[in-house]
Amino acid sequence: MASTDFDAEIKQLRATMHTIEQVLDLDGMRREIDDLGVQVGAPDLWDDQANATRVTGRLSDLQGQVDRFTAILARIGDLEALVELGREEGDADSLAEAEVELTRIAKSVETLEVRTLLSGEYDAREALVTIRAGAGGVDAADFAEMLMRMYTRWAEQHGYGVEVFDTSYAEEAGLKSATFAIHNSYAYGTLSVEAGTHRLVRISPFDNQGRRQTSFAAVEVVPVLEMTDEIEINEEEIRIDVYRSSGPGGQSVNTTDSAVRITHLPTGTVVSCQNEKSQLQNKASAMTILKSRLLALKKAEEDAHIKELKGDVAASWGDQMRNYVLNPYQVVKDLRTGFEVGNPSAVFDGDIDGFLEAGIRWRRGADQTPV
């Protein structure tokens, strides 16, 4: 790469970082960090555990964002020094190393830039993900389990916590449904673009004749609510059932009726939780899930009028938003953004950042389309 290319690329990186700094309001973040630091230092902080958790979580999130920004700036500075050294000494190896680092930094800046597009009301929240097997029998159940692994692997690779609330296993293989939380700020804004119908095409490992099978799974993503969110549930409008937790194939994993299912009668919304050991803990978790789903339902109703004004969107074949094709060729393609990769194995192993970033940019463009 010529020296003028380095100069132009680094100049562009710094310009983008300056824009990101303004959008994120780094000075405001630092002021809030100072204020939260004072609160964390108070001796009575943990007298109110809910507030203490909120304060410490917010402090960790803000500090992490500031640290990521400053780390990228430092890398750009180091890159400039490496380029200058390579030029002065005519060191081709140093310039080659600089070219590799330039590509890495550009990717980091792009990822940080995508974060600035997450400005929705609940985008900064943690995510509650539910996956349900659709049409396709045992292949669909197996596909649902593959998707759950994909998202949990993605979270693990980024160091995000995962908490499984409920899993309903299919009789032969896979999952009927699963609900789990991704514990990281902006997890909802990031993963919300995954909501929709996913389609898998492959030679079925469950078909004795080795025929190609098409199966579907639905992904639902809602924000995890905080204590301050105003979602009130009338006790008279819910039905609570308790039952015994079970594992794969119906095998009992609990000898007491600790699992909890809550039905919201006015909307017909049903949630369940069997991850915790006590019925009380499962009830509390199930209520959290129910509130999150009712919030999503409320927002969907509010958005319905806007969607009507925009008119019907031309749908692709069926109603899927992404195809995972393993036979007769291999590709994973998002039908909304056009983003695709030719390595399904990597995608199912959690390599979905490209799809997430493309989806976030696509959504921002769709939101700004004139009514």
Rank of each mutant, 00 (worst) to 15 (best):
G77H: 07
N184Y: 08
L356M: 09
E97V: 14
A2V: 08
M17G: 00
A181D: 07
D257L: 09
R68K: 12
K283G: 01
L294T: 04
T179D: 08
V341T: 15
L265H: 08
M146V: 10
S185E: 06
G134E: 05
R322T: 04
E302S: 10
T369K: 14
M148E: 01
V55Q: 05
T56I: 13
V331M: 15
F165V: 07
T16Y: 00
E84S: 12
D312M: 12
E357N: 11
T269S: 04
D166H: 12
L265I: 15
E276I: 03
E156Q: 15
V313P: 06
G189N: 08
V221N: 00
K176F: 00
A300S: 15
R54T: 15
D34I: 14
E88G: 03
A366R: 15
L112W: 07
A92P: 09
Q22H: 11
S272R: 02
V313G: 08
A315P: 03
E80V: 02
G318A: 09
A144N: 02
A155L: 08
A81K: 03
E21V: 02
T152V: 10
Q320E: 13
T197L: 13
E230V: 13
S285E: 06
T103G: 11
G136F: 13
G342N: 15
T269V: 15
E156T: 15
R58F: 05
I203E: 07
D303S: 10
T116F: 04
E357H: 13
T4G: 07
T337M: 05
T167I: 13
S185R: 04
I231Y: 07
R364I: 11
L356P: 01
E171H: 00
D61N: 10
G136K: 10
A127N: 05
V38S: 11
V242S: 12
G250A: 04
Q49G: 10
I352E: 00
P328D: 06
L62K: 05
R68Q: 15
G247V: 13
E235I: 11
